[in-house]
Design a protein around this nucleic acid. Structure first.
Lengths: 212, 212
DNA sequence: TTTTATAAATTGACAGTGTCAATTGACACT
DNA sequence: AGTGTCAATTGACACTGTCAATTTATAAAA
């Protein structure tokens, strides 16, 4: 029981509690993720977490923020390994699906939790945006390059929604299709890529313009 | 307080409670949808609902079943109005989005609720399948007709996932794009339709075969 | 009509939850 | 050594879901 909590201590405890919270969420859902249970698991008293988080919603937001941060990290790592924006877009799509399949509980807490006024957690919003930035960048570059055509926001939304739809339905077992999820995701990725791709003529024209 | 509850009475009370439950869910989420609150709203004692539902999960399942049933009804109504399976598919897709936009809370309780062992509620599963049957039928007919090509299950999943992705992200405000949702949905529908459409050559060949 | 059997509804009770106020504890500094 | 202050704990309150025991009201029996 140190007298003064260094910022490092605070962060450490918050992290620790978030990890336990995610585990509890994975095992028993949101309702089963009780503050008292977390405190017990952390080895402290029931109300100690209240010094590190305002309330339960605050913990949930922190958990979600941490997971979005992980996704953003992986996205950025993938983005660094592929220069061509078209290929990068596909790589990011695969990364997205891979992340969800590797961390289904993380994905669930990120998306299937009905959080009210998400806007009140700017740090969370920031990580959400960051998780999308890689894809946005790739889309913008592909647009400049001329291999994509259309409204950039629309394209990003279409791609993201398609991936999210497949992953989300798969995780909630609405489409019970064993391990075919990877194949299905590939089909979705190809379909959407093709759909938002610029027509060859336009693409050639754009290239012509660019290359003089 | 009649001595013997006719099946009609039971169904009526169940329906009544489900309506109140959906309203409570819309206003305060799953956690705010308390049995005691429902009982109070229904004007009965706290444990009376236990004679009509096993527990809270049972009520939730009934609520979701009712909403899936509504969606299935609307789908079937739409399907009846369009003979051509290709056009019917688009009409069903629009119907799906329209339903979600018109009943966002219903949609949320249908999909964003993390229900464990959904399989334990066969009546619910039945309505879920029914809500998909119209689309399955249209896809199968389009496949026979030759205007679609590929694995029927895959096609249905792709279409459904795309729609669900857009609607779901929109409702959770992950893509904050005002009323552009309709336009975006149209883009998604067209993209996916085009993606799963048979190539003209194949389509023509199939037609040739069929027409001798 | 009075009694009775019984389904339906109510109350009581218990464990568990989120959260705040009051209390205790322990360390850093004078 | 003493003290002020932050951190942690305990106490308490209003909730929740759920079961057991109880009461109520009515349909059938006398």
């Amino acid at each position: 029981m140190p007298k003064i909590l260094t910022p490092k201590d605070v962060l450490q405890f918050r992290q620790r509690l978030c990890d336990l919270a995610l585990k509890a969420f994975a095992e028993q859902g949101v309702e089963g993720m009780s503050l008292r249970g977390l405190a017990a698991a952390a080895g402290c008293s029931r109300t100690t977490p209240y010094r590190y988080f305002k309330d339960k919603a605050d913990i949930l937001a922190a958990v979600r923020q941490a997971q979005f941060q992980r996704l953003a990290d992986e996205n950025e790592a993938v983005a660094l390994q592929e220069n061509d924006p078209d290929k990068r877009l596909v790589a990011l799509a695969r990364c997205y699906v891979r992340f969800a399949m590797a961390n289904p509980d993380a994905y669930r807490v990120m998306f299937s939790v009905n959080q009210q006024d998400e806007q009140r957690y700017p740090a969370l919003v920031k990580q959400i945006k960051r998780a999308n930035q890689s894809m946005k960048n790739a889309v913008n570059e592909s647009l400049e390059k001329g291999s994509l055509a259309g409204d950039p926001a629309n394209i990003v939304h279409i791609l993201w929604a398609g991936l999210h739809g497949i992953v989300s339905l798969h995780l909630s077992d609405k489409l019970h299709m064993g391990r075919g999820i990877d194949e299905l995701a590939e089909v979705m990725i190809r379909s959407l890529s093709q759909a938002v791709a610029a027509q060859p003529s336009k693409q050639a024209a754009a290239r012509r313009v660019r290359e003089g």
